[in-house]
Design a protein around this nucleic acid. Structure first.
Lengths: 200, 200
DNA sequence: CCACATTTGTAGCGAGCACTACAATATGGA
DNA sequence: TCCATATTGTAGTGCTCGCTACAAATGTGG
């Protein structure tokens, strides 16, 4: 049996380029021409490999979260809720202003509101953002069980709060805030969690 | 001198309808067809009255901020920095989940990232968001002068923080969070400002 | 070397986009 | 009444969008 002509591009490398385009221009703002140009391939290759623009976005999102997984694990492994929050928010301040990537977070920049033709994209992104909140919630629940968070603390509310701050920082980063400005925001936010921590 | 055929629609009413479309679908996601449909007019009337899609957005943004001006004044007139923050964030929680409007904030939903053709829209929105931050900063500076905020407090950082929380809440609202969930976030955030307040 | 399977580049599809030309219509002033 | 001015509705304009038909190219198995 014949195997066929081999692909001349690396799927993951192309996906990284596509991720950057979506990140910078949003889902709707990114055109197939920009994507194929950045990926170094032609439209038929894109569609053969990924299926559609929306499927390409999902593949890019998968890669995006996979790239951050190791970092997230490290953050969540911090000993206390306060330390988790601090690492998280300070790390976010750095990552969202890293010149190696477009500013902000792909899960926000991708698109909060879309035209009628791609109304499910915002849902997709929201669902992925919710995953981070849930990870934080689990971690804070554990912290409460361990007596690290005060008995009156609400892990779900705290996780939602930290998640909201992250999103706010992301938007600020996308509109030009530098790392220092974000770090100031993070510092204020960390204190909120500190307040609900059991002092040692 | 002749005056011409009178306009059959009310400019501000039409602007309100346009605002809602931009709010719900974002600048790029909103089509002229949707806008004219919602406004109850035809494209030539739209272009005669507003000039272009982007100019229509700016007019809608002007109206948006004008609508909130009275509320902002009331918020900023609160006696203390803590009270300002509380009124602000609790009010935001309500307003961003008010079923009379699309969820979230137009200044965020309008578009964080756009295609190359409308790259200045995100800047326009960011500039308008920055105005709120600046108003807060001025208010917090006054609070510091009045001895209401601790002498070590940084009004600019606090304003940036509150602004970030508002933006985060806005994104959460746009992805379905209800008023109660936002109020929980607001409550945690208010404490951060409380921490830097001089206890009475 | 041939047959097959798959990818590649070119070129272009129909649809929808922001925007407008144009003629009909409706007012106020001379 | 008739002109000047402005808005209205119809019907498009050229353009770009996401996506694809098709044939040439490039590999493997027999």
């Amino acid at each position: 049996m014949a195997i066929g002509r081999p692909r001349t591009f690396d799927r993951d490398t192309a996906l990284d380029q596509a991720m950057e385009v979506f990140w910078r221009h949003g889902y709707e703002g990114a055109t197939i021409a920009q994507l194929t140009d950045a990926m170094g391939i032609n439209p038929p290759s894109l569609y053969a490999a990924f299926g559609s623009k929306e499927a390409l976005l999902r593949a890019a999102l998968d890669r995006y979260t996979a790239r951050r997984e190791a970092w997230m694990d490290e953050v969540l492994s911090a000993p206390t809720a306060r330390e988790v929050t601090s690492r998280m928010l300070m790390g976010v301040a750095e990552k969202q202003t890293d010149p190696a990537n477009p500013p902000g977070c792909l899960l926000v920049q991708g698109g909060l509101a879309c035209g009628s033709g791609s109304a499910n994209v915002p849902f997709e992104l929201a669902a992925r953002r919710a995953q981070t909140e849930e990870q934080l919630r689990h971690r804070f629940e554990r912290a409460k069980d361990e007596g690290d968070l005060a008995s009156g603390a609400d892990p779900a509310a705290l996780a939602r709060y930290v998640s909201a701050v992250i999103t706010g920082m992301s938007v600020m980063a996308s509109s030009g805030a530098d790392c220092e400005a974000l770090a100031q925001v993070a510092a204020v936010a960390v204190k909120s969690v500190e307040d609900q921590s059991v002092r040692a």
